[in-house]
Design a protein around this nucleic acid. Structure first.
Length: 924
RNA sequence: GGGUAUAUAGCUCAACGGUUAGAGCGCUUGAUUCACAUUCAAGAGGUUGAAGGUUCGAAUCCUUCUAUGCCCACCA
């Protein structure tokens, strides 16, 4: 890349954009261009050229909402997806990571309307009308979309831009209409007056999932209703109450029979009331009696349905009282409530008031204003009805996908990580009601239903009798395109945004028009999402895919937690603690950001994100940079002006590894190779089990502790020709292993060591079990321990670092082995002027003593301070303690009898070692 | 009310029934022409939230409790 030596510190901004461009231009983001492997029986995987079929691996990006810009949560998702995609790609899979965005119906329209209102437009819908307002929203969405796509690129995400999708584009609209029509024809979609959540501010229906409950302290009124006392927090809904409900087994009300009628005085005069008996009533609560308001309460509506009762609208769609409220007509609920209470009191109907009653109020999560249950004509998906061709309901399909597997096929099972979320998912399914899919907003897929004549909406109707007939249209057409003929009017409503999101895994693959991509990449291989959209999204994808394609949408779902700030608070714009990923990238680089968001995370658990974490990650990136820098400089045989690429052409950097199996390796060489082989095997297992954080941690330990702190230090002394080859071999391997986590710096370095191909499509390292056995790590471990012991003894005794001392080691059986590493030990910053190695010997007076197992070390020429005495005494005490504990354990017959032999032996060996150490320590 | 998760060093997290409970950050002491101060060496710091139980052996399994977070629910 450059003809200069590498800078001392890695500066991400100098490389990232160019690298991303290079990846894009390579075409390898598109699986069709990838060199792939075909697994062959018995002989390992075979590399084949592009165009041939490889094993597909597909991930559909959860499409970010076009309501703004990406936040840290998206950074986490992009990191997770891209880590997986890059890993699989390097494993020879035909990887598709498909990018996209979501039009986020209610959220986006609400956002744009809010902006317009802030700009002084009182009622954007009235002022602009449907088409003009849609145009404004579209413009906003497009701008937001383009920002988001740029951010995804900045994250280094290796997605196939040629397949970019949008939940609201033409191809996705076609999919939506097709599925809607299919469901309608299967009788799964119906239109009906049902109780729904009405957001008066947004003037639309919202789903149960879009509601947030807030606790409020309100007065709780006890009212006299005929012979009964009823309690309510909402007297303003009670004008039309004419049914009084109690539990059938409640002894107190035995004399009242179901269907009994009586007259009583009520808010606005006499009413005729009917007694209803229903088991839903809790006799323990209050008086055990309540009146019902079917139009404005979910439970009351259900009771009314069960007993075929009528209801009446009390509150209009703007949250104001209707004429039934008499003199309170036109008042807002909260304004009317105390006034109604006053009137009741004046009439002697108010028994008592409990102040500060804790009441839960429904609020819209987008509008944050109160949500009133209302009865409206809506479109629903029936989740309980049997699907004609399947003899199962949608609920069954959703359930079976995570329990027995779709169609009882274990291969068609969605596996959720962590497993516990399967439980909550199933619980949610069990309590699922019909899905209200219509919304009274404009930004969204318009319901593909056409009427020949437009009906009117009634404010009043009898639920029991008029349900089927109310608002019936003369003629109806449901289909993917406009019907022929004159006079057709399309339904005004749009679809719940999750209807289109539910199709995401296959609408993105061109369904229903194209079949080839679908066949290759569906079901998708892996999906990741936050637990907060498990029900919104995962459930609906499973529903849509099993119903439409007879396939599960994905094999594995990885649930990640939420990123929180240092104090454990959610990041949010409103609380002003938002962190812009682009700012983090500008300061620390994308690799550092990616590493910091996945560090320390466990599936399904929240994690904390803070500056020190990114700094740590940045340091790790820089460490890797300098490891490479050292290897490039030191494995360099020519003059300093020589370019990296020139060095390659001189033939130095040829593929290493083939000649690493002979006996010319040193103890340190064997050790590092052993560690590398273990690392490769463990990282593989981590990936297979989605343990991203653990894999990165393992790589950090190897790179920083084993390689940089030990092996590179050794290599400064052991300057064998083989060393260069080895260093090159190790570097190549760790660049590959790190690549999914920090794609930019590894790709830069890959080029710096003269590789012509992109690291992105290099082959993932394979752990070779035989090699790992061949490379003994034990010999060098002893050397390490001796070095640490000497450094430690010096530091504890405050021996000046510059002061050279003589050391004597009594090495016992390991004499020859340690003898061979004498000069290495001296070179590893032990500050030794001389090193004598004996099998055994006398205690040396006035020397510092240290021990490594049975090996004794004496440092001469340093003052044996008082500190040394204290240190040794402390060590002695500790040694005695552990020996005692081990002795007790080993004399316990139960332990020696019941514990596995290997454990007992290990324990015995350990005790023996300690005892020798103790003996030596006493002697010294 | 039901469910679920978490509780380990000052902070963030490991340790997945095997015995002196480990890292990173922070802290303390020291180093400095060497690939890296985005560095290096060394150190201090823990009755594993509490109490019982199972086991030869428990941070780990069981029970109860406490604290905190999240999800669900029809207390009118």
């Amino acid at each position: 890349m450059s003809n200069k030596e590498l800078p001392k510190a890695y500066n991400p901004a100098d490389y990232e954009d160019a690298i991303y461009k290079k990846w894009e231009e390579s075409g390898f983001f598109n699986p069709d261009n990838l060199p792939c492997e075909i697994p062959t029986k018995g002989r390992g995987a075979k590399r084949v050229s592009q165009g041939e079929k490889g094993e597909p691996y597909s991930i559909m990006m959860p499409p970010p909402n076009v309501t703004g810009v990406l936040h840290l949560g998206h950074a986490l998702e992009n990191s997770l997806m891209d880590i997986m995609a890059r890993y699989q790609r390097m494993n020879g899979k035909k990887v598709l990571l498909l990018p996209g965005t979501d039009h986020a119906a209610v959220a986006t329209q609400a956002k744009v309307e809010k902006i317009l209102i802030e700009q002084g437009i009182k009622n954007p819908r009235q002022e602009f009308g449907r088409e003009k307002l849609l145009e404004k929203i579209r413009k906003y969405a497009e701008e937001s979309k383009s920002t988001i796509l740029k951010q995804i690129k900045k994250m280094g995400t290796s997605c196939d831009w040629s397949r970019l999708a949008y939940t609201f584009d033409e191809a996705r609209n076609s999919a939506v209409n097709t599925v809607f029509t299919k469901m309608y024809n299967d009788g799964l979609i119906y239109r009906g007056k049902r109780i729904v959540n009405w957001d008066a501010k947004l003037q639309t229906t919202i789903s149960d999932d879009e509601i947030v409950w807030q606790e409020e302290k309100v007065p709780f009124y006890y009212l006299q209703y005929g012979p009964f006392v009823i309690a309510t927090a909402r007297p303003e809904t009670k004008f039309g109450d004419k049914y009084v409900v109690m539990h059938p087994d409640d002894e107190r009300y035995k004399k009242y029979k179901h269907g009994d009628k009586f007259e009583c005085e009520w808010i606005n005069g006499k009413v005729s009331a009917t007694v209803i008996k229903d088991k839903i009533i809790d006799p323990e609560f209050g008086s055990g009696v309540m009146t019902i308001t079917p139009w404005h309460d979910m439970v009351d509506f259900e009771i009314s349905q069960r007993h075929n009762l009528s209801g009446e609208q009390i509150i209009d769609f703007n949250g104001k009282l209707l004429p039934i409220a008499g003199e309170f007509v036109g008042m807002k609920i909260l304004e009317a409530r105390p006034k109604i209470a006053e009137k009741l009191k004046a009439k002697g109907l108010l028994v008592k008031v409990e102040e500060n009653y804790l009441h839960r109020v429904a609020k819209g999560d987008r509008s944050n204003s109160s949500v009133e249950p209302q009865i409206k004509e809506q479109w629903f998906v029936d989740v309980n009805k049997t699907i004609p061709s399947k003899n199962k309901s949608l609920k069954d399909l959703m359930r079976e996908a995570v329990t027995v597997g779709h169609n009882n096929d274990p291969k068609q099972k969605v596996k959720i990580t962590p497993e516990r979320f399967a439980k909550t998912y199933l619980h949610w399914i069990d309590n699922l009601r019909d899905w209200c899919i219509s919304r009274q907003i404009w930004w969204g897929h318009r319901i593909p239903v056409y009427y020949r004549k437009q009906g009117m909406t009634n404010f009043q109707f009898s639920i029991s009798n008029e349900m089927q007939n109310a608002n019936a249209k003369d003629e109806i057409y449901v289909g993917t395109g406009q019907p022929r003929g004159e006079g057709w009017v399309q339904d005004e409503d749009t679809l719940d945004t999750w209807f289109s999101s539910g199709l995401w895994t296959f609408s993105t693959l061109g369904w229903p028009e194209q079949a080839k991509n679908l066949k290759t990449f569906h079901p998708t291989s892996w999906m990741q999402m936050g637990y907060e959209i498990l029900f919104f999204w995962m459930a609906r994808m499973i529903l849509m895919s099993t119903y439409t394609l007879d396939q599960i949408p994905f094999k594995d779902v990885y649930i990640h937690g939420m990123l929180r700030n240092e104090a454990g608070k959610k990041f949010s714009k409103s609380s002003g603690n938002n962190i812009d990923p682009l700012e983090v990238i500008a300061k620390f680089g994308t690799d550092a950001l990616r590493l910091s968001v996945i560090a320390g995370i466990a599936p399904g658990n929240d994690s904390k994100f803070y500056k020190e974490k990114v700094e740590g990650a940045r340091n790790m990136v820089n460490k890797l940079w300098n490891v490479a820098r050292y290897i490039i400089i030191n494995c360099h045989s020519g003059g300093s002006e020589e370019r990296a690429t020139d060095r390659i052409s001189s033939g130095f950097y040829r593929s290493a590894g083939a000649s690493l199996q002979n006996d010319s390796l040193t103890a340190a060489d064997n050790w590092i190779l052993n560690r590398l082989q273990t690392l490769i095997a463990e990282v593989l297992a981590d990936f297979d089990n989605f343990r991203f954080s653990e894999a990165a941690e393992r790589l950090r330990v190897f790179t920083w502790d084993d390689l940089a702190d030990w092996y590179l230090e050794v290599s400064k002394f052991e300057k064998t020709y083989k060393k260069k080859e080895l260093l090159q071999y190790i570097l190549e391997n760790i660049l590959k292993l790190w690549h999914p986590f920090m794609p930019f710096v590894t790709e830069v370095l890959w080029q710096e060591i003269g590789k012509k191909e992109l690291l992105m499509v290099e082959k993932w390292p394979k752990s070779d079990a035989i090699a790992s056995l061949q490379h003994d790590k034990g010999e060098f471990e002893v050397i390490k321990d001796i070095v640490v012991a000497i450094r430690n003894a010096r530091a504890e005794n405050k021996v000046e670092p510059a002061k050279k001392v003589k050391a004597v080691i009594y090495a016992g059986k390991k004499k020859a082995q340690i003898e061979s590493q004498r000069e290495l030990i001296k070179s590893l910053r032990t500050g030794l002027s001389e090193l004598e190695i004996e099998t055994d010997g006398e205690k040396i007076d006035g020397a510092i003593y240290a021990a490594v197992g049975e090996i004794e070390i004496y440092l001469l020429g340093a003052v044996d301070s008082e500190k040394e005495k204290i240190r040794l005494e402390k060590e002695l005490a500790n040694l005695k303690k552990v020996i005692k504990a081990a002795e007790v354990r080993l004399t316990n017959k139960e332990f020696t009898d019941k514990a596995p032999a290997a454990i007992v032996k290990k324990e015995k060996d350990k005790l023996k070692g300690w005892q020798v150490e103790l003996k030596n320590l006493k002697n010294s």
